[in-house]
Design a binder for these strands. Sequence first.
RNA 1: GCGCGGGUAGUCUAGUGGUAGGACAACGCCCUUCCGAGGCGUUAGCCCGGGUUCAAAUCCCGGCCCGCGCACCA
Length: 564
Amino acid sequence: MSEIMEMLIRRGFLWQSFEIYGGIAGFIDYGPLGNGLRRRLENLWREFFVVNERAVEIDCPTIGIEEVYVASGHATSFTDVAIECSECGKVYRADHYVKEKLGFEIDESVEAVREILKEFDLRCECGGKFKDPEPFNLMFETKIGPGRGKKGYLRPETAQGIFIAFRRLSDYFRDKLPFGVAQVGRSYRNEISPRQGVIRLREFNQAELEYFVHPEKKTHPGFENYREKVVKLVDKRDVEHEIELGKAVKKGIILNELIAYFIAKTEEFLIKAGIDRSKLRFRQHKDDERAHYACDCWDAEVLTSYGWIEVVGIADRGCYDLSRHMEYSGEDMTVFIPYKEPVKVKKKVVIPDMKKLGPLFKKKAKKVAEELKKMVPSEKIVVVLDGEEVEVPRECYRIEEVEEIVHGEKVVPHVIEPSFGLDRITYAILEHSFDTDVVDGEERKVLRLKRWMAPVQVAVLPLLSREPFTSKALEITNELKKVGIFTEYDDSGSIGRRYRRYDEIGTPFCITVDHQTFEDETVTLRDRDTTSQIRIAIKSLSDVLVNLLNSERDIREFGEVFRE
RNA sequence: GCGCGGGUAGUCUAGUGGUAGGACAACGCCCUUCCGAGGCGUUAGCCCGGGUUCAAAUCCCGGCCCGCGCACCA
């Protein structure tokens, strides 16, 4: 096990879930410190992507009904067909194997694969025959209610809940684009073989923002602040660019300004959270790599001991999701966009003649009339009635030119989705923060978390583990807790040992109650990164700490230096 | 899911068929202290299940977990 993983387990950041029963791959427990860190990350995310956008956060069930995932496409495209060799036991994804061996695409259904295997006598590379193909769905299935129940799935992404509630959300925003809707929560994917510890989990934490925009207005007023920001991009042809975002959009490397805006914002967020800038890049999905719904997609990738891993996906999902739910549910998912001035439009329309239609189509006449109104005017019109094509005789309708006043148009909004994998980001922060250096000739382990991210922000330590040092230290601990600082009290072991303990878990500041405290009501304040110390009055502690914890200022600005 | 290698206190590790040992950590007491001091003591372990054997941490089989390679990662 790596040095960092050993520390994370020992100190209470991460644990294997179900450990006492032997554990199972793909699940982790967040210990007290890991949970604290991830909570800080979530709140920082809200600050960036909800509070400072025209956006809100909602919370939907983690169990979804089958209809949702049929409409979203997950029920089909999330299902792979697997084929297993009966000789050597190798398992392949059927579509990949067929494409590689036979060179064509196939339907992802068990029947189609079964047929191909038979028709081409497709064998494993070892020469063995394949067993009967089996479907493998990456979604966890469940049952809602007793008995046969209703089929449900654990959500594979938080996004769908937002699309489903779109009508309500659009009302909430008074039908005015653009607006964003966020959701932070758990999602589930039944991975075939999760590995690499926290990198591929079966239950994981996502923070997603669905930013709904007019299809022709993929811009953001905030982009002006980022136009000259330089980021590291790897485009879909694997070409690297260190380029200003404004130029990247102009050159067509990034599809639109809105994606570029979220790339910038994501970069800012990740760096504020503690990701190492030199280990961060944005990589564009290749044409054959994009999900079924996306028209452009950029991943934020960070370099870790597992290599470059994807931590954020920024996708332009177009109108895919809303259109699909509109189609499958019948609910109107459009937004009415008024024109500045109403426009007069002349157009030709089809007007049904009920006198003729009635006798001809009898009961179906009304339906025919309705279909007719939707048709493009023409001398020959064919309508589809209950799946049957019927030509409507020319004398049954008139074509007239009418003048209409149009006040606006209905559009299905497009959505840009920045989607964050909180578990991976949390882990990457830990790896990027983990460091060793030498203090007074001895090596120390230190977790250089950003001050505002640390799960324990301040440790209060009595120099001696007896009265009156202990009482005074406890008193200070309680005062700091009252102003919302995550503070711990610790009197166990020598003072040096305790400093190292808090260095290792990334606590930025230690306060020590010493002999002088009882002479002049001051304590020492120690900085984790430099190990320098100042003397400071107890009464100004909370103000100074709040200031320090929200900045990267040097403690030496705040008091007399006690140790360099 | 396949193949190879592993799994001994919280962590690291010794132990190849015959009483499971150490280091560090943690906890208690003593010492009293500004960068992992010292002394004494305590807690704590053979991944799970089956088999072979008089006897299994050790050998065999299955499972689970970890690592690596392959496959998978919409």
